[in-house]
């Protein structure tokens, strides 16, 4: 089986498919891409199944040697991309010839890029998914980020169809230093003071240094509880804002645990998850409460943009 060899791993490069769904009742976290839209787009551009495993690159990109010729695409955060020293476009499929090297240069905007390779990365699946979950050490290669010397097994590209399309405009608007993120109130809005949703929207929150794929620790206007900071542990959806006794919220992201005991004031809408996934420590988030109708309209608009690339 042909492979890509890892020469340099980059800062934190993990193998991700759409995530390990269906086992949260057994305590298994979903994991999956921090920016699911860019992950799917990368796969679409090289003709892969949308669930195929890609590489999620964080802030500093890898260097990969390819054994055979492959069509690849890079989406998400904007980087300089070079094949044997020649610049390649983002958001468009291109060919990496046999025995040549893909290298990431400077990062321009955004935090996470996705490398899709025609045929996909076919490491063995664990509990139905190839997604790397770092804390439980599951998926990817031995549940860890890739490192120099790894051999990434690649699937048969023959069964994939190269998309002709390059992207006219990005589907995910890359944030520069900060983003406005829309939320819906709940599921435990009644555990907070009456003005808590106004406080949440009153000023930007900074993403702390101890933020990771599991969640973003935020610093900003303090949210007041009205019924204490403990609830009987319940489920923790993607994008939920849980608020411990400190009053400083934690935004739960891809590697979140399946359940938690803090009240949750609001939840990021699905259409804005990918933008949030492009943020990193030092960036800010300005929250805006929206309506369910607005959330669904935004999601449908995003889906239309993705489907336009697929056809």
């Amino acid at each position: 089986m042909s492979a890509a060899r890892v020469v340099k791993a980059g800062m934190l490069t993990t193998i991700q498919d759409r995530g390990r769904w269906g086992l949260q009742s057994r305590g298994v976290p979903v994991a999956g891409p921090m920016d699911p839209v860019s992950h799917r787009l990368a796969n679409v551009l090289v003709g892969n199944d949308p669930d195929a495993a890609t590489l999620e690159v964080t802030l500093l990109g890898p260097q990969l040697d390819f054994e055979d010729e492959r069509v690849i695409a890079v989406t998400g955060a904007e980087f300089e991309i070079l094949v044997d020293g020649k610049p390649m476009p983002m958001h468009a499929p291109f060919i990496v010839p046999a025995e040549s090297q893909l290298r990431f240069g400077a990062r321009l905007r955004g935090a996470r890029a996705y490398i899709a390779i025609a045929g996909g990365i076919v490491v063995p699946a664990t509990l139905g998914s190839r997604s790397t979950h770092l804390i439980s050490g599951m998926g990817g290669i031995d549940g860890r980020p890739i490192r120099a010397g790894d051999r990434l097994p690649l699937g048969d590209p023959g069964c994939t169809r190269r998309s002709a399309a390059a992207l006219a405009q990005p589907v995910v608007q890359l944030p520069e230093g900060g983003a406005v993120i829309r939320v819906l109130a709940g599921p435990q809005r009644e555990y907070f003071s009456d003005d808590a949703l106004n406080v949440l929207q009153s000023a930007p929150y900074a993403i702390g240094q101890n933020s990771d794929r599991m969640g973003f620790r935020l610093t900003g206007p303090r949210l007041s509880h009205s019924r204490g900071a403990d609830i009987i542990s319940d489920a923790t959806p993607l994008g939920v804002l849980q608020v411990p006794a400190s009053g400083q919220p934690i935004l739960l992201m891809a590697d979140r645990q399946t359940a938690g005991g803090y009240p949750k004031i609001a939840t990021v809408i699905t259409a804005d998850i990918s933008v949030a996934g492009q943020l990193c420590p030092g960036d800010t988030i300005t929250f805006r409460v929206c309506t369910p109708g607005e959330a669904i309209a935004a999601l449908i608009a995003q889906e239309r943009a993705l489907m336009a690339v697929e056809t």
Binding site: L184, A235, L299
Partner: peptide, 15 residues
């Protein structure tokens, strides 16, 4: 109760 646009929570007595 809705938890965002992609999840809902069915809640029973709080104990």
């Amino acid at each position: 109760v809705a938890a965002g646009d992609s999840a809902l929570i069915v809640e029973f007595e709080e104990r």
